[in-house]
Lab assay of single mutants.
Amino acid sequence: MLEGKVKWFNSEKGFGFIEVEGQDDVFVHFSAIQGEGFKTLEEGQAVSAEIVEGNRGPQAANVTKEA
């Protein structure tokens, strides 16, 4: 698991990027966000996630919002 913060997230398109210190930004799709209801993230929000290899490079999986 790694910790980072949301760089930006487009709720209409359902994707965005997470900033991780010392690494390239990581793509995040709404389907990777854990929880019930409408899955979205806010800019600057702290999150933790796993990194997996997607079709277009590294992407976030099992994204959870930090308190």
Results as ranks from 00 to 15, higher is better:
residue 1 M to W: 13
residue 1 M to Q: 11
residue 1 M to E: 07
residue 2 L to G: 04
residue 2 L to E: 04
residue 2 L to R: 11
residue 2 L to H: 10
residue 2 L to F: 14
residue 3 E to L: 15
residue 3 E to F: 15
residue 4 G to F: 07
residue 4 G to K: 01
residue 4 G to R: 03
residue 4 G to N: 01
residue 4 G to L: 06
residue 5 K to Y: 11
residue 5 K to L: 09
residue 5 K to T: 10
residue 6 V to E: 00
residue 6 V to G: 01
residue 7 K to N: 03
residue 7 K to A: 04
residue 8 W to S: 00
residue 8 W to K: 01
residue 8 W to T: 00
residue 8 W to V: 00
residue 9 F to K: 00
residue 10 N to W: 09
residue 10 N to A: 07
residue 11 S to Q: 13
residue 11 S to D: 06
residue 11 S to W: 11
residue 11 S to Y: 11
residue 12 E to Q: 14
residue 12 E to N: 12
residue 12 E to I: 14
residue 12 E to S: 14
residue 12 E to Y: 13
residue 12 E to T: 13
residue 12 E to R: 14
residue 13 K to W: 10
residue 13 K to P: 00
residue 14 G to I: 03
residue 14 G to Q: 02
residue 15 F to T: 00
residue 15 F to R: 00
residue 16 G to P: 00
residue 16 G to F: 05
residue 16 G to R: 02
residue 16 G to L: 04
residue 17 F to Q: 01
residue 17 F to R: 03
residue 18 I to H: 00
residue 18 I to R: 01
residue 19 E to P: 02
residue 19 E to K: 12
residue 19 E to L: 12
residue 19 E to V: 11
residue 20 V to A: 06
residue 20 V to Y: 06
residue 21 E to R: 11
residue 21 E to W: 12
residue 21 E to S: 10
residue 21 E to M: 11
residue 22 G to Y: 06
residue 22 G to F: 07
residue 23 Q to E: 09
residue 23 Q to P: 04
residue 23 Q to W: 14
residue 23 Q to L: 13
residue 23 Q to M: 14
residue 23 Q to I: 11
residue 24 D to K: 14
residue 24 D to W: 10
residue 24 D to I: 12
residue 25 D to K: 06
residue 25 D to R: 06
residue 25 D to Y: 07
residue 25 D to G: 05
residue 25 D to C: 12
residue 25 D to A: 07
residue 26 V to S: 01
residue 26 V to D: 00
residue 26 V to P: 01
residue 26 V to E: 00
residue 27 F to G: 00
residue 27 F to H: 02
residue 27 F to I: 01
residue 27 F to W: 05
residue 27 F to M: 01
residue 28 V to F: 12
residue 28 V to D: 03
residue 28 V to W: 04
residue 28 V to T: 03
residue 29 H to I: 06
residue 29 H to P: 02
residue 29 H to C: 09
residue 29 H to R: 04
residue 29 H to Y: 07
residue 29 H to Q: 03
residue 30 F to Q: 03
residue 30 F to L: 05
residue 30 F to I: 06
residue 30 F to P: 01
residue 31 S to G: 07
residue 31 S to W: 09
residue 31 S to N: 06
residue 31 S to M: 07
residue 31 S to T: 12
residue 32 A to F: 06
residue 32 A to H: 07
residue 32 A to I: 04
residue 33 I to F: 04
residue 33 I to S: 03
residue 34 Q to E: 10
residue 34 Q to D: 08
residue 35 G to F: 08
residue 35 G to I: 07
residue 36 E to N: 11
residue 37 G to N: 06
residue 37 G to Q: 04
residue 38 F to P: 08
residue 38 F to E: 06
residue 39 K to V: 08
residue 39 K to Y: 05
residue 39 K to F: 06
residue 39 K to R: 11
residue 39 K to G: 04
residue 40 T to N: 08
residue 40 T to P: 02
residue 40 T to K: 07
residue 40 T to H: 08
residue 40 T to Y: 11
residue 41 L to T: 00
residue 41 L to I: 04
residue 41 L to C: 06
residue 41 L to A: 01
residue 41 L to Y: 01
residue 41 L to P: 02
residue 42 E to H: 14
residue 42 E to C: 15
residue 42 E to R: 14
residue 43 E to L: 13
residue 44 G to M: 04
residue 44 G to D: 05
residue 44 G to E: 03
residue 45 Q to M: 11
residue 45 Q to A: 09
residue 46 A to E: 09
residue 46 A to K: 14
residue 46 A to S: 11
residue 47 V to T: 01
residue 47 V to C: 05
residue 48 S to V: 12
residue 48 S to T: 14
residue 48 S to N: 10
residue 48 S to E: 07
residue 49 A to Q: 03
residue 49 A to V: 15
residue 49 A to E: 01
residue 50 E to Q: 14
residue 50 E to R: 13
residue 50 E to H: 13
residue 51 I to H: 03
residue 51 I to A: 03
residue 51 I to M: 09
residue 51 I to G: 01
residue 51 I to E: 02
residue 52 V to E: 07
residue 52 V to P: 01
residue 52 V to M: 09
residue 52 V to N: 05
residue 53 E to A: 13
residue 53 E to V: 14
residue 53 E to S: 12
residue 53 E to H: 14
residue 54 G to D: 05
residue 55 N to F: 15
residue 55 N to P: 15
residue 56 R to H: 10
residue 57 G to A: 06
residue 57 G to P: 04
residue 57 G to M: 05
residue 57 G to I: 04
residue 58 P to Y: 10
residue 58 P to R: 15
residue 59 Q to M: 11
residue 59 Q to Y: 14
residue 59 Q to W: 13
residue 59 Q to V: 10
residue 60 A to M: 04
residue 61 A to P: 02
residue 61 A to G: 09
residue 62 N to P: 02
residue 62 N to S: 10
residue 63 V to Y: 00
residue 63 V to A: 02
residue 63 V to T: 03
residue 63 V to R: 02
residue 63 V to P: 02
residue 64 T to V: 14
residue 64 T to W: 14
residue 65 K to N: 07
residue 65 K to G: 08
residue 65 K to D: 04
residue 65 K to L: 12
residue 65 K to H: 08
residue 66 E to A: 14
residue 66 E to Y: 15
residue 66 E to M: 15
residue 67 A to D: 11
